[in-house]
Write a protein that binds this DNA or RNA. Sequence first.
DNA 1: CGGCTTCTTGATCAAGCTCAAGCTTAGTGG
DNA 2: CCACTAAGCTTGAGCTTGATCAAGAAGCCG
Lengths: 236, 236
Amino acid sequence: MSQVSQARRRAAQCSTCAMRHLCMPEGLSAFETEKLEDVISATRPVRRGEALFRTGDTFESLYAIRSGSIKTVVSREDGREQVTGLHLGGDALGLDGIGEGRHMSTAIALEDSSVCIVPYARFERMCRETGSIQRRLHQMMSREIVRETRQLTTLGTLRADERVARLLLDLSARFTRRGYASAEFTLRMTRDDIGSYLGITLETVSRTLSRFQARGLIDTRGKFIRINDFDALRAI
Amino acid sequence: MSQVSQARRRAAQCSTCAMRHLCMPEGLSAFETEKLEDVISATRPVRRGEALFRTGDTFESLYAIRSGSIKTVVSREDGREQVTGLHLGGDALGLDGIGEGRHMSTAIALEDSSVCIVPYARFERMCRETGSIQRRLHQMMSREIVRETRQLTTLGTLRADERVARLLLDLSARFTRRGYASAEFTLRMTRDDIGSYLGITLETVSRTLSRFQARGLIDTRGKFIRINDFDALRAI
DNA sequence: CGGCTTCTTGATCAAGCTCAAGCTTAGTGG
DNA sequence: CCACTAAGCTTGAGCTTGATCAAGAAGCCG
């Protein structure tokens, strides 16, 4: 079997990955779809706790999460660390490396995960050939910018309980979009990661969740969460 | 004079704009440069306090700041507002609109400013034709993502005085890159805007600046700032 | 089962917010 | 060009939110 058709077969498995999503909607020809699948050269497993890439690594590929979930973190010289992103199945990863040719963050799997590898040089060339794929890439990057802007407003204006509520609603919406139950999910991050992502301490996360539970807004047992009252969470 | 050559002449005036920066380095042919200048169709003045675009506006163009400075803000339903970006001469604006075809933030001039208008449809087409311009656009978007990630770490991990110090150093670096004095500049934002950008109150901004001055790190008189001790600011 | 990490909860404390008042600067109209 | 007014800035006092420190409970994995 040729290398190319092997790659194509692997890509075809990639049913939930962002690159697939990237090309599915609004009219790609069969020819275009085929080209896109050629460029998704391989998949790669990432174990829980393992890094997909690290700050400073040479940027070569974008990644799309096939399964699992991955956090991105930025560390400061003094050792303080901040979780800057939380990526689920279908999300793209690595866009921060395009600008300087090196990754500007570290991506760590929150559970055993699998990603599609999209060699950037070939992908960029393909964008030039196929307008609809180019448009997808630009949308993807723009949406990442908007997502971060939204996170900026979370960290800039919200109180602790508002931050936690927004995270829960956010995750719920994202799981829903992926076809999972909207009211029940398992947080893969630790309280520490959640706190870092929200700019609060792990104790405050824990206390806030307890308070939400006491008020009947959610049920929580460790990492498992059930949302009972969406409206009340939105109203916080 | 033909419309095209008029546009070209206007673009040629655009000596400091991002699109020019976008195309200057590493080898564009004269032909490519000419094409780029064709696509920069016009410039537009924006008065202090006036909006270049607003949340919800249909996205049609990117903008590059020719002169002046512009803040981007996001408003929440309850009226709370957050400054999410601070853009100086040469910076691009409007990337957040690509994803959904509508602007996701409001851009307001901090002083009388002027921007280059880059109609996006034509620009995207040109990216497809010219790889070096495409690469520039991708770099620009990626760097915006990295910039926001950095701002996330500011809001997520730093104390108030660290935030103010980082802003001052950041502005200094950006002015330096633009060929201005690195130690002296005039803040165009009000204390309120600065506070919103940094996720603190205007009173805390004012107090922090006063404390820096008392310690001899800076001189400040209203919006004018002189940095006396870069190392001390970095060490905060 | 034992040793680890993670989570919860309590008590205390301080950074930064709020409210308030006076001052300075900049913009406007006579 | 000056006077007036509104916007912006500074500083103080007191209070609140969430951080810190601490200790024990609960999961989780080898």
